[in-house]
């Protein structure tokens, strides 16, 4: 599985891929949650995962930064490479991987600490700021990018758990972008947001796309269509269709995709 010569062998086309996943299977004990999924995720693009509830979008997303390691009963097989390097290699420290591949979770989960500390935590443990002023800058910039700065700039020392659900989700986004990851995985980042905040987060996604690779899980077809360049449709643990967003939405190849995006299954 671990092929040391792999990086040099990558072809030009593959080099553009941030992530390449081949034949990934995930089991929760006996539950086969992801069935032989292969996806290539381009750099500097937004890839959307869509599909009905329980089809394994979150599960697959969590494979990309090895968050499934934390679930005892979860077993992941297959080949997932980040920049050509096998992320499941025993030599890979998941901590280093997660610093590169940030994540926003489906349920907002701010730390029970102050808003400031929530955002500053990542930069602190990774040593991204050399002083208080620099850290303040990072916090402000991250909160601005997450469209939260205006609402919290006067209460940075108040607990992050005291924010509304949508504000908490944006705080989690700020926390994730503060560590400057190369890839950002977002699991339904806008499900708790109002249209205005949603628009701001979509703007952020668009902006981040200039430098990063993004993967976003969403239940909103419009959002997938608006922000993503590539779309993957999952159904019952299988990757049914993967391609250009425009193609998927205008001209789906699989009938299940068509039914889903037109609202007939899900």
């Amino acid at each position: 599985m671990n092929d040391m010569t792999m990086p040099e062998q990558t072809t030009k086309a593959e080099a553009d891929y941030k992530f390449t996943a081949k034949g990934v299977d995930v089991f929760y004990a006996d539950n086969h949650a992801i069935k032989d999924v292969s996806v290539d995720i381009n750099d500097k693009t937004v890839t959307a995962f869509i599909g009905p509830s329980g089809c394994g979008k979150s599960t697959f997303l969590r494979c990309l930064n090895r968050m499934n390691d934390t679930i005892d009963i979860c077993r992941v097989t297959g080949d997932i490479r980040l920049d050509g390097e096998d992320i499941n290699d025993p030599k890979v420290d998941p901590v280093q991987l997660r610093a590169k591949v940030g994540m926003v979770f489906q349920k907002p989960n701010p730390f029970p600490k102050s808003i400031y500390d929530n955002v500053a935590y990542g930069p602190r443990i990774h040593g991204l700021a050399s002083g208080k002023a620099e850290l303040d800058d990072i916090v402000e910039k991250s909160l601005r990018r997450a469209a939260l700065w205006g609402e919290v700039k006067d209460r940075l020392d108040k607990p992050g758990t005291g924010l509304s659900g949508g504000q908490q989700q944006r705080l989690c986004i700020a926390r994730a972008v503060a560590t400057e990851p190369e890839v950002l995985l977002m699991d339904e980042p806008c499900s708790a947001l109002d249209p205005i905040a949603t628009a701001q987060v979509e703007e952020l996604i668009d902006e981040l796309r200039q430098n990063y690779s993004l993967v976003i899980v969403t239940h909103s077809m419009q959002q997938a269509a608006r922000v993503s360049q590539k779309t993957a449709f999952f159904h019952l643990g299988e990757l049914v269709e993967f391609g250009e967003t425009a193609d998927i939405f205008t001209n789906p190849e699989d009938s299940r995709t068509e039914s889903y995006i037109t609202g007939r299954i899900g």
Partner: peptide, 27 residues
């Protein structure tokens, strides 16, 4: 301590030890 706190810490790249001592233990 809710597992989401551990996920949050691990998700920003904290080690398990940091997760435990910075977040889980205080709670």
């Amino acid at each position: 301590v809710p597992p989401s706190i551990r996920e949050a810490a691990l998700g920003v790249g904290a080690s398990r030890m940091q997760t435990v001592f910075h977040h889980v233990l205080p709670l």
